[in-house]
Design a protein around this nucleic acid. Sequence first.
RNA 1: GGCCCUAUCGUCUAACGGUUAGGACGUAAGCUUCUCAAGCUUAAAAUCCGGGUUCGAUUCCCGGUAGGGUCACCA
Length: 459
Amino acid sequence: MKFSNPFQKKSGTEAKVVTRIAPSPTGPLHVGTARSALFNYLFAKHHGGLFLLRIEDTDRKRSKKEFEQDIIEGLAWLQLPYDGFEKQSLRTDIYTTYIDRLIDSNKAYSSKEASKEDPTKTAELIRLKNPNKDITFHDLIRGDITFNTAELGDFVIAKSRSEPLYHLTVVVDDFEMGVSHIIRGEDHISNTPRQILIQEALGIERPSYAHLPLILAEDRSKLSKRHGAVSLSAFKSGYLPDAMINYLAFLGWNPGTKEEILTRDELIKLFDISDVQKGGAIFDIVKLKAVNKKYINRLDREALQERVISKLPTRVKQLEHFSEEILNSALPLIRERIKTFDDITALAENGELDFYFARPNYEASRLLSKDAHDLGQVKVYLETLHSILGSLDAGAFSEDSIKAAVWDFATKEGRGLVLWPMRYALTGLAKSPDPFIISEILGKDETLARLSAASAKIK
RNA sequence: GGCCCUAUCGUCUAACGGUUAGGACGUAAGCUUCUCAAGCUUAAAAUCCGGGUUCGAUUCCCGGUAGGGUCACCA
Protein backbone atom coordinates (compact mmCIF):
# COMPACT_ATOMS: atom_id res chain seq x y z
CA MET A 1 0.00 0.00 0.00
CA LYS A 2 1.43 3.35 -1.03
CA PHE A 3 0.20 6.84 -0.42
CA SER A 4 1.14 9.72 -2.61
CA ASN A 5 2.08 12.92 -0.92
CA PRO A 6 -0.58 15.53 -1.66
CA PHE A 7 1.44 18.48 -0.45
CA GLN A 8 4.38 17.72 -2.65
CA LYS A 9 2.14 17.04 -5.61
CA LYS A 10 0.23 20.24 -5.49
CA SER A 11 3.07 22.57 -4.68
CA GLY A 12 5.73 20.85 -6.71
CA THR A 13 8.24 21.06 -3.90
CA GLU A 14 9.68 17.56 -4.27
CA ALA A 15 13.27 18.31 -3.44
CA LYS A 16 12.50 21.03 -0.98
CA VAL A 17 13.36 21.06 2.67
CA VAL A 18 10.24 21.30 4.80
CA THR A 19 10.39 21.56 8.58
CA ARG A 20 7.77 22.16 11.21
CA ILE A 21 7.07 22.58 14.86
CA ALA A 22 4.14 20.72 16.26
CA PRO A 23 3.31 22.05 19.70
CA SER A 24 0.28 20.88 21.58
CA PRO A 25 -1.75 23.75 23.04
CA THR A 26 -1.81 22.36 26.56
CA GLY A 27 0.28 25.15 28.00
CA PRO A 28 1.87 28.47 27.03
CA LEU A 29 4.74 28.53 24.54
CA HIS A 30 7.78 27.16 26.33
CA VAL A 31 11.31 28.46 25.69
CA GLY A 32 12.28 24.94 24.66
CA THR A 33 9.59 24.91 22.02
CA ALA A 34 10.66 28.38 20.95
CA ARG A 35 14.21 27.17 20.41
CA SER A 36 12.91 24.16 18.53
CA ALA A 37 10.98 26.53 16.31
CA LEU A 38 14.11 28.64 15.79
CA PHE A 39 16.26 25.68 14.75
CA ASN A 40 13.56 24.40 12.41
CA TYR A 41 13.24 27.87 10.96
CA LEU A 42 16.99 28.38 10.54
CA PHE A 43 17.43 24.98 8.96
CA ALA A 44 14.56 25.46 6.52
CA LYS A 45 15.60 28.96 5.52
CA HIS A 46 19.25 27.97 5.19
CA HIS A 47 18.14 25.45 2.59
CA GLY A 48 15.60 27.73 0.97
CA GLY A 49 12.80 25.55 2.32
CA LEU A 50 9.55 25.87 4.19
CA PHE A 51 8.84 26.12 7.89
CA LEU A 52 5.39 25.06 9.06
CA LEU A 53 3.34 25.28 12.23
CA ARG A 54 0.99 22.49 13.22
CA ILE A 55 -1.17 22.64 16.31
CA GLU A 56 -1.47 19.16 17.82
CA ASP A 57 -4.79 19.39 19.54
CA THR A 58 -6.15 15.88 19.18
CA ASP A 59 -6.53 15.74 22.94
CA ARG A 60 -9.65 17.88 23.15
CA LYS A 61 -9.77 17.84 26.90
CA ARG A 62 -6.32 19.27 27.49
CA SER A 63 -6.09 21.59 24.50
CA LYS A 64 -7.02 25.20 25.07
CA LYS A 65 -7.64 27.92 22.56
CA GLU A 66 -5.80 30.44 24.73
CA PHE A 67 -2.63 28.36 24.59
CA GLU A 68 -2.89 28.07 20.83
CA GLN A 69 -3.11 31.84 20.82
CA ASP A 70 -0.10 32.13 23.08
CA ILE A 71 1.94 29.91 20.75
CA ILE A 72 0.97 31.96 17.71
CA GLU A 73 1.67 35.25 19.47
CA GLY A 74 4.99 33.99 20.76
CA LEU A 75 6.18 33.06 17.29
CA ALA A 76 4.98 36.42 16.04
CA TRP A 77 6.91 38.19 18.78
CA LEU A 78 10.06 36.28 17.86
CA GLN A 79 9.34 37.09 14.24
CA LEU A 80 9.53 33.51 13.10
CA PRO A 81 7.01 33.45 10.25
CA TYR A 82 5.68 30.09 9.15
CA ASP A 83 4.85 29.17 5.59
CA GLY A 84 1.95 26.90 6.44
CA PHE A 85 -0.48 26.22 9.26
CA GLU A 86 -2.50 23.15 10.17
CA LYS A 87 -4.62 22.12 13.08
CA GLN A 88 -5.11 18.47 13.85
CA SER A 89 -8.59 18.83 15.28
CA LEU A 90 -9.70 19.86 11.80
CA ARG A 91 -8.19 16.86 10.11
CA THR A 92 -10.00 13.94 11.70
CA ASP A 93 -11.32 12.62 8.37
CA ILE A 94 -7.82 12.36 7.00
CA TYR A 95 -6.68 10.26 9.94
CA THR A 96 -9.73 8.01 9.61
CA THR A 97 -8.73 7.25 6.02
CA TYR A 98 -5.30 6.18 7.16
CA ILE A 99 -6.64 4.15 10.06
CA ASP A 100 -9.00 2.32 7.69
CA ARG A 101 -6.18 1.58 5.30
CA LEU A 102 -4.11 0.19 8.11
CA ILE A 103 -6.96 -2.05 9.25
CA ASP A 104 -7.89 -3.08 5.72
CA SER A 105 -4.34 -4.04 4.95
CA ASN A 106 -4.17 -6.02 8.16
CA LYS A 107 -1.43 -3.85 9.67
CA ALA A 108 -3.63 -2.75 12.53
CA TYR A 109 -6.66 -4.15 14.28
CA SER A 110 -9.51 -3.07 16.42
CA SER A 111 -9.69 -4.56 19.86
CA LYS A 112 -12.31 -4.43 22.58
CA GLU A 113 -10.76 -3.85 25.96
CA ALA A 114 -11.67 -2.64 29.39
CA SER A 115 -11.53 1.15 29.46
CA LYS A 116 -8.67 2.62 31.40
CA GLU A 117 -10.80 5.45 32.65
CA ASP A 118 -13.69 3.24 33.66
CA PRO A 119 -12.69 -0.44 33.97
CA THR A 120 -16.33 -1.55 34.14
CA LYS A 121 -16.82 -0.49 30.53
CA THR A 122 -15.25 -1.88 27.43
CA ALA A 123 -13.80 0.39 24.80
CA GLU A 124 -12.63 0.00 21.25
CA LEU A 125 -8.95 0.54 20.65
CA ILE A 126 -6.96 0.42 17.43
CA ARG A 127 -3.60 -1.26 17.82
CA LEU A 128 -0.75 -1.53 15.35
CA LYS A 129 0.51 -5.02 14.62
CA ASN A 130 4.06 -4.85 15.80
CA PRO A 131 6.48 -6.80 13.61
CA ASN A 132 8.79 -6.94 16.63
CA LYS A 133 11.98 -6.04 14.89
CA ASP A 134 14.98 -3.80 15.38
CA ILE A 135 14.63 -0.28 14.04
CA THR A 136 17.71 1.76 13.28
CA PHE A 137 17.38 5.35 12.23
CA HIS A 138 19.96 7.97 11.45
CA ASP A 139 19.93 11.10 13.57
CA LEU A 140 21.57 14.12 11.96
CA ILE A 141 23.00 15.16 15.31
CA ARG A 142 23.67 11.86 17.05
CA GLY A 143 24.30 9.31 14.34
CA ASP A 144 22.61 5.91 14.17
CA ILE A 145 20.25 4.92 16.96
CA THR A 146 18.84 1.41 17.29
CA PHE A 147 15.80 0.23 19.22
CA ASN A 148 14.29 -3.17 19.67
CA THR A 149 10.60 -2.51 19.11
CA ALA A 150 9.47 -5.84 20.55
CA GLU A 151 9.15 -4.27 23.99
CA LEU A 152 6.65 -1.78 22.56
CA GLY A 153 4.04 -4.44 21.91
CA ASP A 154 1.03 -3.77 19.73
CA PHE A 155 0.77 -0.17 20.81
CA VAL A 156 -2.41 1.87 20.53
CA ILE A 157 -2.60 4.27 17.59
CA ALA A 158 -6.20 5.39 17.98
CA LYS A 159 -9.02 5.21 20.49
CA SER A 160 -11.42 4.66 17.62
CA ARG A 161 -11.59 5.24 13.87
CA SER A 162 -12.33 8.88 14.56
CA GLU A 163 -10.11 9.38 17.59
CA PRO A 164 -6.51 9.10 16.42
CA LEU A 165 -3.66 9.33 18.88
CA TYR A 166 -0.38 11.21 18.74
CA HIS A 167 1.91 8.72 17.01
CA LEU A 168 -0.52 8.16 14.17
CA THR A 169 -1.33 11.83 13.60
CA VAL A 170 2.30 12.89 13.61
CA VAL A 171 3.22 10.35 11.00
CA VAL A 172 0.24 11.11 8.83
CA ASP A 173 0.63 14.87 9.02
CA ASP A 174 4.36 14.97 8.52
CA PHE A 175 3.78 12.91 5.41
CA GLU A 176 0.77 14.88 4.20
CA MET A 177 2.52 18.17 4.77
CA GLY A 178 5.64 17.02 3.00
CA VAL A 179 7.90 17.40 6.02
CA SER A 180 11.38 16.35 4.99
CA HIS A 181 13.23 16.94 8.26
CA ILE A 182 11.88 16.37 11.72
CA ILE A 183 13.85 18.51 14.13
CA ARG A 184 12.55 18.18 17.67
CA GLY A 185 13.57 17.76 21.28
CA GLU A 186 15.58 14.86 22.59
CA ASP A 187 12.58 13.73 24.59
CA HIS A 188 11.14 12.42 21.32
CA ILE A 189 13.97 9.99 20.61
CA SER A 190 12.10 7.10 22.14
CA ASN A 191 8.97 7.99 20.17
CA THR A 192 10.80 7.68 16.89
CA PRO A 193 10.79 3.87 16.56
CA ARG A 194 7.00 3.76 17.06
CA GLN A 195 6.53 6.38 14.40
CA ILE A 196 8.82 4.58 12.00
CA LEU A 197 6.82 1.39 12.53
CA ILE A 198 3.68 3.26 11.51
CA GLN A 199 5.43 4.72 8.46
CA GLU A 200 6.50 1.26 7.41
CA ALA A 201 3.02 -0.15 7.90
CA LEU A 202 1.72 2.66 5.71
CA GLY A 203 4.49 2.22 3.19
CA ILE A 204 5.46 5.85 3.29
CA GLU A 205 8.91 7.34 3.14
CA ARG A 206 10.91 7.98 6.26
CA PRO A 207 11.85 11.64 6.84
CA SER A 208 15.24 12.69 8.21
CA TYR A 209 15.50 13.09 11.96
CA ALA A 210 17.47 15.40 14.23
CA HIS A 211 16.94 15.41 17.98
CA LEU A 212 17.93 18.57 19.76
CA PRO A 213 19.50 18.55 23.22
CA LEU A 214 17.17 19.66 25.97
CA ILE A 215 17.22 23.05 27.63
CA LEU A 216 17.92 22.47 31.29
CA ALA A 217 17.20 24.27 34.54
CA GLU A 218 20.02 25.31 36.84
CA ASP A 219 19.93 21.92 38.58
CA ARG A 220 20.30 20.16 35.21
CA SER A 221 16.80 18.77 35.27
CA LYS A 222 14.33 19.42 32.50
CA LEU A 223 13.29 23.07 32.50
CA SER A 224 9.75 23.28 33.83
CA LYS A 225 7.25 25.53 35.55
CA ARG A 226 8.68 24.99 38.99
CA HIS A 227 11.92 26.59 37.80
CA GLY A 228 10.32 29.96 37.23
CA ALA A 229 10.00 31.76 33.95
CA VAL A 230 9.93 29.20 31.17
CA SER A 231 7.05 30.64 29.23
CA LEU A 232 8.32 32.70 26.37
CA SER A 233 5.72 35.35 27.11
CA ALA A 234 7.45 36.09 30.42
CA PHE A 235 10.29 37.65 28.41
CA LYS A 236 8.23 39.93 26.22
CA SER A 237 8.23 42.90 28.55
CA GLY A 238 11.93 43.01 29.32
CA TYR A 239 13.71 41.55 26.33
CA LEU A 240 14.18 42.29 22.66
CA PRO A 241 13.07 39.44 20.39
CA ASP A 242 16.33 39.66 18.44
CA ALA A 243 18.28 39.20 21.65
CA MET A 244 16.19 36.17 22.57
CA ILE A 245 16.74 34.70 19.10
CA ASN A 246 20.46 35.31 19.31
CA TYR A 247 20.74 33.75 22.75
CA LEU A 248 18.58 30.75 21.90
CA ALA A 249 20.50 30.12 18.69
CA PHE A 250 23.70 29.83 20.68
CA LEU A 251 22.16 27.48 23.23
CA GLY A 252 23.28 24.15 21.88
CA TRP A 253 24.73 25.47 18.67
CA ASN A 254 27.73 27.49 17.63
CA PRO A 255 28.83 28.56 14.17
CA GLY A 256 32.48 28.60 15.22
CA THR A 257 32.78 32.29 14.46
CA LYS A 258 34.46 34.67 16.87
CA GLU A 259 31.49 37.01 16.86
CA GLU A 260 28.58 35.90 18.97
CA ILE A 261 26.17 38.69 18.17
CA LEU A 262 24.72 37.77 14.81
CA THR A 263 21.79 38.99 12.77
CA ARG A 264 19.03 36.66 11.65
CA ASP A 265 20.40 36.58 8.13
CA GLU A 266 23.81 35.64 9.44
CA LEU A 267 22.30 32.92 11.60
CA ILE A 268 20.42 31.53 8.61
CA LYS A 269 23.53 31.61 6.49
CA LEU A 270 25.72 29.94 9.10
CA PHE A 271 23.29 27.40 10.52
CA ASP A 272 24.33 23.78 10.17
CA ILE A 273 22.39 21.08 11.97
CA SER A 274 25.48 18.90 12.30
CA ASP A 275 27.10 21.58 14.45
CA VAL A 276 24.39 21.22 17.06
CA GLN A 277 25.56 20.07 20.48
CA LYS A 278 24.54 16.66 21.84
CA GLY A 279 24.42 17.44 25.54
CA GLY A 280 21.74 19.48 27.24
CA ALA A 281 22.36 23.14 28.01
CA ILE A 282 21.38 25.14 31.06
CA PHE A 283 19.19 28.14 30.39
CA ASP A 284 21.31 30.96 31.80
CA ILE A 285 19.28 34.07 32.40
CA VAL A 286 22.43 36.05 33.29
CA LYS A 287 23.90 35.44 29.87
CA LEU A 288 20.57 36.18 28.22
CA LYS A 289 20.64 39.54 29.99
CA ALA A 290 24.15 40.23 28.74
CA VAL A 291 23.03 39.54 25.18
CA ASN A 292 19.92 41.64 25.69
CA LYS A 293 22.08 44.52 26.90
CA LYS A 294 24.12 44.41 23.70
CA TYR A 295 20.91 44.68 21.73
CA ILE A 296 19.61 47.49 23.92
CA ASN A 297 22.87 49.32 23.25
CA ARG A 298 22.17 49.09 19.54
CA LEU A 299 18.62 50.33 19.84
CA ASP A 300 18.07 53.75 18.31
CA ARG A 301 17.14 56.62 20.57
CA GLU A 302 13.52 56.92 19.55
CA ALA A 303 12.82 53.25 20.14
CA LEU A 304 14.55 53.32 23.50
CA GLN A 305 12.69 56.43 24.60
CA GLU A 306 9.43 54.79 23.69
CA ARG A 307 10.28 51.76 25.81
CA VAL A 308 11.42 53.91 28.72
CA ILE A 309 8.23 55.95 28.71
CA SER A 310 6.11 52.82 28.68
CA LYS A 311 8.03 51.46 31.67
CA LEU A 312 7.99 54.59 33.82
CA PRO A 313 5.57 54.52 36.75
CA THR A 314 3.01 57.33 36.60
CA ARG A 315 4.41 58.73 39.82
CA VAL A 316 7.62 59.63 37.95
CA LYS A 317 5.73 60.97 34.96
CA GLN A 318 3.85 63.29 37.29
CA LEU A 319 6.97 64.82 38.81
CA GLU A 320 6.93 68.62 38.44
CA HIS A 321 9.71 68.98 35.88
CA PHE A 322 8.97 65.83 33.92
CA SER A 323 9.34 66.34 30.19
CA GLU A 324 10.25 64.18 27.25
CA GLU A 325 13.11 66.56 26.47
CA ILE A 326 14.81 65.94 29.79
CA LEU A 327 14.08 62.24 29.49
CA ASN A 328 15.69 62.24 26.09
CA SER A 329 18.89 63.78 27.37
CA ALA A 330 18.95 61.33 30.26
CA LEU A 331 18.54 58.40 27.87
CA PRO A 332 22.23 57.49 27.51
CA LEU A 333 22.51 57.36 31.29
CA ILE A 334 19.47 55.16 31.64
CA ARG A 335 20.62 52.94 28.81
CA GLU A 336 23.91 52.09 30.46
CA ARG A 337 22.13 51.18 33.69
CA ILE A 338 19.73 48.58 32.32
CA LYS A 339 20.00 45.04 31.03
CA THR A 340 16.28 44.53 30.51
CA PHE A 341 13.43 46.96 30.10
CA ASP A 342 12.04 45.83 33.40
CA ASP A 343 15.14 47.35 34.97
CA ILE A 344 13.74 50.76 34.02
CA THR A 345 10.80 50.24 36.32
CA ALA A 346 13.11 48.99 39.05
CA LEU A 347 15.33 52.05 38.67
CA ALA A 348 12.32 54.34 38.87
CA GLU A 349 10.88 52.54 41.87
CA ASN A 350 14.19 52.87 43.68
CA GLY A 351 13.94 56.60 43.18
CA GLU A 352 17.06 56.65 41.02
CA LEU A 353 15.39 58.65 38.28
CA ASP A 354 13.52 61.25 40.32
CA PHE A 355 16.28 63.83 40.38
CA TYR A 356 16.01 64.41 36.65
CA PHE A 357 12.48 65.69 37.11
CA ALA A 358 12.29 67.14 40.61
CA ARG A 359 14.45 68.90 43.19
CA PRO A 360 15.94 66.38 45.57
CA ASN A 361 15.04 66.23 49.23
CA TYR A 362 17.75 65.44 51.74
CA GLU A 363 19.31 66.32 55.07
CA ALA A 364 22.08 68.95 54.93
CA SER A 365 24.46 66.56 56.70
CA ARG A 366 24.38 64.25 53.66
CA LEU A 367 26.28 66.94 51.77
CA LEU A 368 29.33 65.85 53.72
CA SER A 369 31.47 63.38 51.80
CA LYS A 370 33.00 60.39 53.55
CA ASP A 371 36.08 62.22 54.87
CA ALA A 372 34.55 65.65 55.40
CA HIS A 373 33.40 67.09 58.74
CA ASP A 374 33.04 70.79 58.14
CA LEU A 375 29.65 71.77 56.81
CA GLY A 376 30.69 75.41 56.77
CA GLN A 377 33.45 74.51 54.34
CA VAL A 378 30.93 72.65 52.17
CA LYS A 379 28.80 75.77 52.06
CA VAL A 380 31.79 77.72 50.78
CA TYR A 381 32.44 75.09 48.10
CA LEU A 382 28.81 75.16 47.02
CA GLU A 383 28.89 78.94 46.72
CA THR A 384 32.13 78.87 44.78
CA LEU A 385 30.69 76.24 42.46
CA HIS A 386 27.65 78.45 42.02
CA SER A 387 29.72 81.41 40.98
CA ILE A 388 31.99 79.37 38.66
CA LEU A 389 29.02 77.83 36.86
CA GLY A 390 27.12 81.11 36.94
CA SER A 391 29.80 82.69 34.80
CA LEU A 392 29.42 80.02 32.12
CA ASP A 393 27.50 80.78 28.96
CA ALA A 394 24.10 79.15 29.25
CA GLY A 395 24.24 78.17 25.58
CA ALA A 396 27.45 76.21 26.10
CA PHE A 397 26.53 74.60 29.39
CA SER A 398 27.89 71.22 28.46
CA GLU A 399 29.44 68.33 30.33
CA ASP A 400 32.86 69.21 28.98
CA SER A 401 32.76 72.93 29.63
CA ILE A 402 31.37 72.41 33.12
CA LYS A 403 34.05 69.92 33.90
CA ALA A 404 36.76 72.20 32.51
CA ALA A 405 35.47 75.09 34.61
CA VAL A 406 35.28 73.13 37.85
CA TRP A 407 38.16 70.73 37.54
CA ASP A 408 41.10 72.83 38.74
CA PHE A 409 39.21 74.14 41.70
CA ALA A 410 38.06 70.66 42.69
CA THR A 411 41.52 69.22 42.29
CA LYS A 412 43.04 71.97 44.40
CA GLU A 413 40.57 71.52 47.25
CA GLY A 414 40.30 67.73 46.98
CA ARG A 415 37.98 66.27 44.38
CA GLY A 416 35.92 64.22 46.76
CA LEU A 417 35.45 67.18 49.06
CA VAL A 418 34.04 69.32 46.26
CA LEU A 419 32.47 66.88 43.82
CA TRP A 420 30.52 64.87 46.39
CA PRO A 421 28.51 67.85 47.66
CA MET A 422 28.08 69.12 44.12
CA ARG A 423 26.66 65.79 42.98
CA TYR A 424 24.59 65.38 46.13
CA ALA A 425 23.13 68.84 45.72
CA LEU A 426 22.02 67.92 42.24
CA THR A 427 20.74 64.39 42.85
CA GLY A 428 20.21 63.85 46.56
CA LEU A 429 21.67 60.40 45.96
CA ALA A 430 24.72 58.59 47.32
CA LYS A 431 25.02 56.72 44.03
CA SER A 432 24.38 58.46 40.75
CA PRO A 433 25.94 59.55 37.48
CA ASP A 434 28.65 62.21 37.73
CA PRO A 435 27.78 65.86 38.44
CA PHE A 436 29.01 67.23 35.10
CA ILE A 437 26.68 65.30 32.86
CA ILE A 438 23.83 65.84 35.29
CA SER A 439 24.42 69.60 35.24
CA GLU A 440 24.27 69.55 31.48
CA ILE A 441 20.99 67.62 31.48
CA LEU A 442 19.47 69.88 34.13
CA GLY A 443 20.57 73.05 32.39
CA LYS A 444 22.20 76.12 33.83
CA ASP A 445 19.25 77.61 35.67
CA GLU A 446 18.19 74.41 37.40
CA THR A 447 21.76 73.49 38.29
CA LEU A 448 22.35 76.88 39.88
CA ALA A 449 19.04 76.66 41.70
CA ARG A 450 19.91 73.28 43.22
CA LEU A 451 23.35 74.53 44.26
CA SER A 452 21.72 77.52 46.01
CA ALA A 453 19.13 75.30 47.63
CA ALA A 454 21.91 73.11 49.00
CA SER A 455 23.92 75.94 50.51
CA ALA A 456 20.73 77.42 51.95
CA LYS A 457 20.24 74.16 53.85
CA ILE A 458 23.47 74.85 55.72
CA LYS A 459 22.97 77.38 58.49
C1' G B 1 14.32 -0.76 37.14
C1' G B 2 14.25 -1.69 31.24
C1' C B 3 15.49 0.96 26.90
C1' C B 4 17.81 5.31 24.84
C1' C B 5 20.90 9.75 24.93
C1' U B 6 24.91 12.59 26.94
C1' A B 7 29.83 14.08 29.43
C1' U B 8 35.84 20.50 27.94
C1' C B 9 36.52 26.37 33.04
C1' G B 10 30.72 27.90 37.69
C1' U B 11 27.64 28.53 32.77
C1' C B 12 27.29 28.56 27.08
C1' U B 13 30.96 26.71 24.01
C1' A B 14 35.90 26.26 20.24
C1' A B 15 39.17 22.16 18.99
C1' C B 16 36.88 17.55 14.00
C1' G B 17 44.83 12.76 16.47
C1' G B 18 49.82 16.99 17.34
C1' U B 19 47.32 24.05 20.42
C1' U B 20 50.97 27.33 26.11
C1' A B 21 43.22 23.51 25.47
C1' G B 22 40.76 29.35 22.61
C1' G B 23 36.37 32.68 23.22
C1' A B 24 31.93 34.56 25.64
C1' C B 25 28.93 35.23 30.26
C1' G B 26 29.86 35.38 35.36
C1' U B 27 33.70 36.18 39.28
C1' A B 28 38.24 38.93 41.25
C1' A B 29 41.78 42.90 40.85
C1' G B 30 43.46 47.39 38.56
C1' C B 31 42.63 51.85 35.54
C1' U B 32 39.43 55.86 34.13
C1' U B 33 36.72 62.40 36.97
C1' C B 34 33.87 61.99 44.48
C1' U B 35 29.86 57.69 44.46
C1' C B 36 27.41 54.40 41.10
C1' A B 37 26.82 52.55 36.18
C1' A B 38 29.32 51.81 31.71
C1' G B 39 34.07 51.05 29.42
C1' C B 40 39.18 49.24 29.19
C1' U B 41 43.23 45.94 31.05
C1' U B 42 44.71 41.74 33.73
C1' A B 43 43.89 37.29 36.61
C1' A B 44 41.84 32.76 38.59
C1' A B 45 39.03 28.83 36.36
C1' A B 46 37.98 22.86 32.44
C1' U B 47 39.10 17.97 29.04
C1' C B 48 34.50 12.69 34.80
C1' C B 49 37.49 7.98 36.01
C1' G B 50 40.02 3.47 34.20
C1' G B 51 41.67 0.66 30.29
C1' G B 52 42.97 0.16 25.26
C1' U B 53 44.34 1.82 19.67
C1' U B 54 48.37 5.18 18.18
C1' C B 55 54.86 7.83 17.78
C1' G B 56 50.96 10.99 19.93
C1' A B 57 44.69 11.36 22.50
C1' U B 58 39.79 16.46 24.63
C1' U B 59 39.28 14.01 19.93
C1' C B 60 38.70 6.90 18.08
C1' C B 61 37.14 2.00 20.84
C1' C B 62 35.63 -0.62 25.48
C1' G B 63 34.22 -0.51 30.64
C1' G B 64 32.87 2.25 34.87
C1' U B 65 30.76 6.59 37.07
C1' A B 66 27.55 10.63 36.85
C1' G B 67 23.58 13.31 34.68
C1' G B 68 19.35 13.42 31.56
C1' G B 69 15.22 11.50 28.60
C1' U B 70 11.47 7.87 28.04
C1' C B 71 8.56 3.82 29.38
C1' A B 72 -0.30 6.42 28.49
C1' C B 73 -6.54 4.74 25.94
C1' C B 74 -1.05 12.83 26.71
C1' A B 75 1.59 15.19 23.17
